[in-house]
């Protein structure tokens, strides 16, 4: 068992990280009462601009920061069209996804005359972090040590995310916006200001998550996100809209992804089936929770 499960768990931790990052940002918008289906487009935007700016600046840090900046700009546009022009958030979210998929390819073509995979030779692979001492911890060391900085950064951000949402006035107001916005507006605060901030946070985490996807490869592949933003949305629901729930849910999806590669080869189970399992799992969880809510409501009426 051990001989194959540890590499799978190790790669699950890598795979889950962009999901975790995107879902963290999505959690803020979700809690502020907006279904943010633009995560996919934001993630893709972050992926593209991070690698491109890394290429032009020669610095991964500068590249990532500029990539995050571009993603936040797009999320700011999304927020203002949605909140100020009073558009349906669902439709503007789809627009962002479509826009990002078009823009990245158009720019890739304009800059590199290449619509396919663009490989950047000057980008070195992400350094893997860890000390021999930590790595030698049995099992845990094998699974959790030796990842790129993005992985550890995502854990740090998760703790910050929890802290912000549950331990700062800002977080309380964001949650109040989603739960009962009149509780804010009747006291003279503007719920939309908190929604706007949530969109910006989504842009930030998606930019970072996207950066990890491309910098890991040293290349940009069209549609590299391949639905990861959508999965991040599902992670929010499966994680029960709680920061540490996100971690578990993202891990489940990461594990399914990692295991499917293995199962395909070694066990001859089609990978598509295994990839479908988390969706079915989420569906069942959603049905379960709505049955629970309905029964609870029935007593009240």
């Amino acid at each position: 068992m051990m001989h194959f499960s540890i590499p799978i768990l190790h790669s699950a931790v890598t795979i889950m990280t962009p999901l975790l990052l995107a879902s963290m940002g999505g959690l803020f918008t979700e809690l502020s009462g907006m279904l943010n289906i633009a995560l996919e487009g934001l993630l893709l935007t972050g992926a593209f601009f991070s690698v491109v700016f890394t290429y032009f600046t020669g610095s991964m840090i500068a590249g990532t920061l500029l990539g995050i900046g571009c993603t936040m700009l797009l999320s700011a546009i999304l927020a203002s069209v949605t909140l100020n022009l009073k558009s349906n958030v669902f439709i503007t979210g789809l627009a962002v996804n479509l826009f990002a998929s078009g823009l990245t390819v158009v720019l890739s073509f304009a800059l590199f005359a290449n619509k396919g995979v663009v490989v950047f030779d000057n980008i070195r692979p992400l350094p893997l972090l860890g000390t021999p001492r930590l790595a030698s911890i049995p099992i845990l060391g094998d699974i959790f040590i030796g990842h790129s900085a993005f992985v550890y950064l995502s854990w740090l951000l998760l703790v910050i995310c929890y802290f912000v949402l549950y331990r700062t006035p800002f977080g309380f107001r964001i949650r109040a916006t989603g739960l009962h916005q009149e509780a804010l507006s009747s006291l003279g605060m503007r719920p939309n200001a908190y929604r706007f901030a949530s969109f910006l946070i989504s842009g930030f985490t998606c930019g970072l998550g996207g950066a990890m996807l491309t910098l890991n490869l040293g290349a940009f592949v069209p549609n590299i996100t391949a639905g990861k933003g959508w999965i991040a949305l599902v992670v929010i629901f499966l994680g029960n809209k709680k920061p540490f729930g996100l971690f578990i849910a993202a891990f489940i999806f990461g594990l399914a992804d990692a295991f499917s590669n293995y199962a395909q080869g070694a066990l001859n189970i089609p990978s598509d089936f295994i990839l479908a399992i988390p969706y079915v799992f989420t569906l069942l969880a959603m049905i379960g929770s709505s049955i629970y809510a309905k029964n609870k409501g029935a007593i009240e009426s």
Binding site: S87, A95, V96, F99, S101, G102, L103, V105, V106, F109
Partner: peptide
């Protein structure tokens, strides 16, 4: 892919 950009602009504004 400029098509996607144009379509997305329509999309962005259509529900405003």
């Amino acid at each position: 892919e400029i098509a996607a950009i144009v379509q997305s602009i329509v999309f962005f504004l259509i529900s405003s």
